[in-house]
Amino acid sequence: MPHPTILASTGALTHFAGRFFREVVRPRYEVQEWLYQCYVVGYQSLPLVGSTAFIMGLVLTLRLRPTMVQFGAESWIPTMVGLTIIREMGPIITALMVAGKVSSNIGAELGSMRVTEQIDSMEVSGTNPFKYLVVTRVLATTLMLPVLTIVADAISLYASYLGVNMQGVTTLALFSHNILGRLNFSDITAAVVKTFCFGFAIGLIGCYKGYYADKGTEGVGQAANSAVVVSSLAVFILDLLAVQVCLVLGIA
């Protein structure tokens, strides 16, 4: 079978998303499985996302400092780091980390279930596998990514505070005041809204790649691999769109 074109793949993914929206509102609601997936996506990703966020905040501050000192704008470091993290770096880095960890995991898990007939088995035991496997996972990534991003932003800003104090002295109150004084409510809402979209894309692409995996174990590997690649790319494309929408709406 020839490889599907990008347009055909996009069409199939859109159809898959349409099925998600149809299935998500229909009972039966798989609450227990959804809660478990929230635990897997949210809680189990926390160490990776948290450590990445800490390093990101610290490195950003340490690298920014010499340049800011050169221009006599040392006091602007918290504001610059805060805006950078909350508007862009926090959502993007968190989404990429989750895409790498969760999307590949979903792609491999569902792919493996597909090639070993576990999905068919679920269907013949009277369970809707799309609802049980796909809807729960996509909902979990959609709702957990904003939460992870907020946690990552907080960790990152605290790391930045430590970074500022490594080569100078500032209080947490002053550091926070510098950030919050320049931050608009729309900065936060825009960032949170786009993380919902990132989470949806990551879950949907991981599930799509796994759900339609074929060709045995090779197919499982391909599903996991392409889930990471495509969902990471989708995060960047969605971010670009979000920037354009924010500019049009005059948010940024």
Partner: peptide, 19 residues
Amino acid sequence: DQLRTKVGFLFQSNALYDS
């Protein structure tokens, strides 16, 4: 789905949920 509760299916690969 209701009918399938009355019809068991034993897959060639067993299809046990491995997790």
